[in-house]
Design a binder for these strands. Structure first.
Length: 180
DNA sequence: CTATGGATTCGCT
DNA sequence: GCGAATCCATAGA
């Protein structure tokens, strides 16, 4: 099953079980994505793109497959995969994953051995991703890469999105339950 | 220019 | 469970 980034809901579900690789700092770290949220650009009151293009969200309006990184609560970095045709400003927030490679490096970056990748800020920090990675192409085999391979199978559940105050009725958070 | 508050996390209780 | 930490994009004057 090849990576599908055309419409944001399909893309969000399709990203579950995929490997995301970071080689930031020369160390290879990988996670399997298990928690994502879809944001539907200007049609979605909870999206950063709801009010149209701004300096911060311009990457969302660009081509799909790019990384949109923003600062959250002044402290954390969070990352999205841009989906949909250019100009649509759809994006999938990467919220959590399972560490499958480079665990020691992630523990170092996180400053702890547990809760390495179970939250958007944590996942981003564990992979060494910051604002300087905003806009990079995830499909070009660069420092951050979304591997296009068979996803890890599991049961997909949908729930309301977390930490937002608008459009909470949309069950656009997707979780992958993998058997170990 | 200034005010506001958020797609969060952590530490302490 | 609760509140602090802490930046800056955005909106309103």
């Amino acid at each position: 099953m090849t990576l599908h980034l055309d419409d944001v809901l399909t893309a969000a579900r399709g990203l579950l079980g995929r490997r995301l690789r970071s080689t930031v700092g020369g160390v290879c770290c990988e996670v399997v994505l298990t928690e994502v949220e879809a944001y539907d650009g200007p049609n979605d009151p909870a999206s950063h793109a709801f009010r149209g293009p701004t300096p911060r969200n311009q990457v969302m309006f660009g081509p799909p497959g790019r990384l949109y990184v923003y600062r959250s609560y002044g402290i954390h970095w969070c990352m999205n995969v841009v989906t949909g045709p250019r100009g649509r400003a759809e994006a999938v927030l990467l919220r959590g994953g399972i560490a499958v490679a480079g665990r020691p490096e992630m523990e170092l970056r996180r400053g702890r051995a547990k809760h390495l990748t179970d939250g958007p800020g944590k996942l981003t920090q564990a992979l060494g991703i910051t604002g300087e990675h905003n806009g990079i192409d995830l499909l070009a085999g660069g420092e951050i890469t979304l591997l296009d391979e068979k996803p890890v199978p599991g049961l997909i559940r949908a729930t309301p999105r977390i930490g937002i105050s608008r459009a909470t009725e949309r069950e656009w958070r997707f979780l992958l339950e993998v058997d170990d």
